[in-house]
């Protein structure tokens, strides 16, 4: 039996050890936390060069206009006239198809890309051996409603495409290194795809006159993109320079002639039964603006800026083109 004094001494030493350990630990953690202090900063944005274009083929047209058919026929004829879908989609490719799914409107109201046209493009890509076809867009109106009412979700799923809804976590901060656009959140699947097919619908727009292929890239962005309107021409050229799609297929089956880009009334819609497709993202917009709204490309600032950056030719008469009338054949 230790004496009381020895017990006290041992208790005293233990107490010193406990306090010493606690103090040293606290000081250590405090010092470590203190050394970690940083002013919070944005996590860095990524930069990347991307282009999903295909090599030019001088024996083939660069721009084709297919007239007087049903949406699926028009899509097939457009790919055929441009050299066949296998020219654009290889075996094992991940293909991103970007329709316009901006608004809570039905297909008849022509504010979103025609679902039959989309379905056929997906089918063609899958037949050509694409590993995966992804459909996505950052809608303006409530996302789920837009994808459902437009018929886009149904058309995409029934053809076996993956529909990716733009959840907040699917965006990456990207430095677009443009004149108007710096760091913006971009929907991830657009960064990862091997091939990108732009599938806009032709619509009237009060600010830019028309909304076509270049304007459709608005839908890859998250964040407060309503600011883009303040420098719309530079913004559209920046987006076009960043995306550089494999192909642009403009849906002009039903055209929203007035009250765009939302429309709503069937009185605003004209059935033109046309698809315009091109490997030149500038020429195709220029052609459609002229053909349906009689807008001169020289007066559309975004086309001029895009041509200055070497993204394409706005004088569509200078590109190899072909018009196919399905009713005549």
């Amino acid at each position: 039996m230790p004496t009381d004094a020895a017990a006290d001494r041992r208790e005293f030493l233990l107490q010193v050890l406990r306090l010493g350990g606690l103090s040293a630990g606290t000081l250590g953690v405090g010092a470590w936390l203190g050394s970690r202090s940083r002013r919070p900063e944005d996590t860095g944005a990524i930069t990347l060069e991307r282009s999903s274009g295909v090599a030019p083929d001088l024996s083939l047209p660069e721009l084709v206009v297919i007239q007087n058919g049903e949406p699926a026929q028009l899509a097939r004829a457009a790919f055929d006239a441009l050299g066949g879908v296998r020219r654009f989609v290889g075996r094992g490719d991940v293909v991103m198809v970007k329709p316009n799914v901006g608004w809570d409107r039905t297909a008849e109201q022509a504010a979103n890309t025609n679902p039959q046209l989309l379905g056929e493009v997906i089918r063609l890509c899958r037949d050509a051996g694409a590993k995966k076809v992804v459909v996505s867009d950052v809608s303006c109106n409530e996302t789920v409603t837009c994808f459902e009412r437009s018929g886009i979700a149904e058309a995409a799923r029934s053809q076996g495409a993956e529909v990716i809804l733009p959840e907040a976590r699917r965006f990456k901060e990207v430095d677009l290194r443009g004149d108007a656009l710096g760091v913006w959140p971009v929907l991830e699947p657009f960064l990862e795809a091997d091939k990108v097919i732009n599938l806009p619908i032709a619509k009237h727009h009060s600010l830019t006159g028309v909304t076509l292929g270049m304007k459709n890239w608005y839908g890859i962005l998250g964040g407060q993109r309503s600011r883009l309107h303040q420098r719309i021409n530079e913004s559209l050229a920046d987006l076009a320079a960043f995306m550089q799609p494999t192909l642009t297929v403009v849906d002009a089956f039903r055209v929203l002639m007035r009250n765009g880009p939302t429309g709503g009334s069937l009185a605003d819609v004209e059935e033109r039964r046309t698809v315009v497709a091109s490997t030149d993202p500038v020429a195709v917009d220029a052609y459609v603006a002229k053909a349906f709204w009689d807008l001169d490309f020289r007066r559309l600032g975004f086309l001029r800026l895009a041509e200055e950056r070497g993204l394409g030719k706005m004088n569509f008469e200078e590109v190899r083109s072909r018009i196919v009338d399905l009713a005549a054949s």
């Binding site: 608004w103 009060s206 600010l207 309503s226 309107h229 303040q230 420098r231 429309g263 709503g264 009334s265």
Partner: peptide
């Protein structure tokens, strides 16, 4: 409002207006 008092283009409100005519 940007076009009203800051000499800046905008009209996002017009773009979104869902009635037809707007």
């Amino acid at each position: 409002c940007l076009p009203w008092s800051m000499a800046t283009e905008c009209i996002v409100c017009e773009e979104w207006c869902p009635t037809s005519p707007k």
